[in-house]
Amino acid sequence: MVLRLGLVFSTSGSYAALGQSALAGALGAIDTLRDVVEIEPVIRDPGGDVARYEAAASELLGGGVRHIVGAITSWSRKDMIPVLERKDGLLWYPCPYEGFECNDHVVYLGAAPNHHVVPATDWIAAQGVQRVYLVGSNYVWGWETLRLARDRLQSAGIEVVGERYVPLGSTDHAHVVDEICATGAECVCNSLIGPSNTSFLHDLMARDPARRGRPGHMVSFNQTEADLDELGPAADGLLSAGSFFEEDAGAVLLQAARTYAPSGRASAFLASAHAAVEIFAHAAVSAGTDAPREVFAAASKGPVRTAMGDLRIDPVMRHATLAPRLALAEGGRFRVIGRAAAAIPADPYLARQDTSPAPRRPDLRVVK
Rank of each mutant, 00 (worst) to 15 (best):
R86G: 00
K87T: 02
K87E: 07
D88R: 12
G89A: 08
L90K: 00
L91G: 04
L91Q: 09
L91W: 04
L91E: 12
L91K: 00
L91F: 02
W92K: 06
W92D: 04
W92S: 06
W92L: 06
Y93E: 08
Y93F: 11
Y93C: 11
P94R: 09
C95P: 03
C95R: 10
P96N: 15
P96Q: 15
Y97V: 05
Y97G: 00
Y97M: 04
Y97E: 08
Y97R: 04
G99E: 06
G99S: 09
G99I: 09
G99V: 11
F100M: 13
F100E: 15
E101D: 15
C102R: 14
C102W: 05
D104C: 00
H105C: 03
H105Q: 09
V106G: 03
V106R: 05
V106H: 14
V107K: 04
V107S: 10
Y108K: 04
L109G: 07
L109Q: 00
L109S: 04
G110K: 06
A111Y: 03
P113S: 08
N114Q: 11
N114K: 11
N114P: 14
H116Y: 12
H116V: 07
V118Y: 02
P119W: 11
A120Y: 05
T121R: 04
T121Y: 03
T121A: 02
T121D: 04
D122I: 03
D122A: 15
D122T: 06
D122F: 11
D122N: 11
W123Y: 15
I124L: 10
A125M: 06
A125W: 06
A125Y: 05
Q127V: 02
Q127H: 02
G128K: 14
G128C: 11
V129F: 00
Q130N: 14
Q130C: 09
Q130M: 12
R131D: 05
R131A: 09
V132D: 09
Y133C: 02
V135P: 00
G136K: 13
S137H: 13
N138V: 03
Y139S: 06
Y139R: 05
V140R: 01
V140H: 03
W141C: 02
G142H: 00
G142P: 01
E144V: 10
E144Q: 14
T145R: 02
L148F: 11
L148Q: 15
L148A: 12
L148P: 12
L148D: 15
A149G: 06
R150H: 13
R150W: 01
D151A: 12
L153T: 06
Q154T: 14
Q154D: 08
Q154R: 15
Q154I: 02
S155W: 05
S155T: 03
S155P: 01
A156C: 08
A156H: 13
G157W: 14
G157Y: 13
I158P: 01
I158T: 02
I158F: 08
E159L: 07
E159D: 13
V160G: 05
V161A: 14
V161S: 12
G162F: 04
G162T: 10
G162K: 04
E163Y: 01
R164W: 14
R164Q: 15
V166Y: 09
V166L: 14
V166D: 13
V166C: 10
V166E: 13
V166R: 08
P167C: 07
L168A: 11
L168T: 12
L168K: 05
G169V: 02
S170F: 09
T171R: 04
T171G: 02
D172E: 15
H173S: 08
A174R: 13
A174K: 05
V176Q: 15
V176G: 07
V177I: 10
V177C: 04
D178T: 08
E179Q: 14
